[in-house]
Design a protein around this nucleic acid. Structure first.
Lengths: 146, 146
DNA sequence: GACCTTAGTTTACAACTGTAATCGTTTTTA
DNA sequence: TAAAAACGATTACAGTTGTAAACTAAGGTC
């Protein structure tokens, strides 16, 4: 099989996606209106990003009359998960715990969120290891194992 | 005061930084050796990134004889924190909890990590709110508050 | 002392990003 | 029905990023 070349979404493109994720279906006008207000983008700018997202396969464009109805080809959750993965790919596995703790300490959380996280953490407790294996190249992390 | 224009570190540049963070101080040779092995970068490629990092102010270059001793101008933790922040800036605050839960469930954790996270979570419990305020623009998130 | 290695600097260049104007059609409106 | 508005497509263009070769100067080697 061909190597799956990972197409990524840029920060600006994600702004477009957020509108579509929210609305479910949207015309270019819907998108432009929201982002003209929020980002002060010219309509042409939003159009460019819409076009790129369609080309990249993140937006589906269903013809309707002389225009398109856009919808997301990927769920917001999956997309956020991918972004989070990319972040963790850049740090040593051994640091993942500390990083999550940092994020946790700064995140705005509701009681419900805390509850959810507690549940996940409880599950983690059962499967935690004594020492996380390092995934770095020798010389690229402080692990004594190298 | 002048607007602090945020200079960012790219993914490739971060690879260089990881070596420096690990070694504390490093010559270009040290860096090149590690990354030639790991990333199959030509020495010239690593040199380019080193130069850009110095220009961006992430790497300090102390002259020593005819070369430089490089060291990091920013700690790895701060840098990871910044990267995490950038990620969270792109999603609705209301989703932060769920996102952290996702990351947590997939992260490789040691007992010690779990313990640390539990402590932070306990602290969070005291300050959790009933409902996290949405930080999105109307039309850009599903919050009923809009 | 003439050459080779090494380190840093300069230059190159294509792809990706942000930002947008313009063009060509179709649809709406006066 | 003629002008105006809307929409997608094409083109533009500078800055960033990945990837690297070439150039230059200093140091080490035979």
């Amino acid at each position: 099989m061909a190597v799956e070349e990972k197409v990524e979404m840029t920060t600006s493109e994600r702004e477009i996606m957020r509108v579509v994720w929210t609305l479910g279906e949207a015309t270019s006008k819907d998108i432009i209106d929201v982002l003209e207000a929020k980002k002060e983008w010219k309509p042409a700018t939003a159009k460019t990003f819409i076009g790129r997202l369609v080309k990249k396969g993140f937006l589906l464009a269903e013809p309707e009359g002389n225009k398109y109805i856009y919808s997301a080809a990927i769920s917001e959750e999956d997309s956020v998960k991918t972004a989070a993965h990319r972040l963790f790919d850049q740090i040593c596995h051994k640091q993942a715990g500390k990083t999550i703790a940092d994020m946790l300490s700064e995140a705005p959380l509701s009681h419900q969120d805390v509850e959810l996280i507690q549940q996940v953490l409880n599950d983690k407790k059962k499967h935690a290891v004594d020492e996380v294996a390092c995934n770095c190249v020798p010389g690229q992390c402080k692990c004594s194992t190298h």
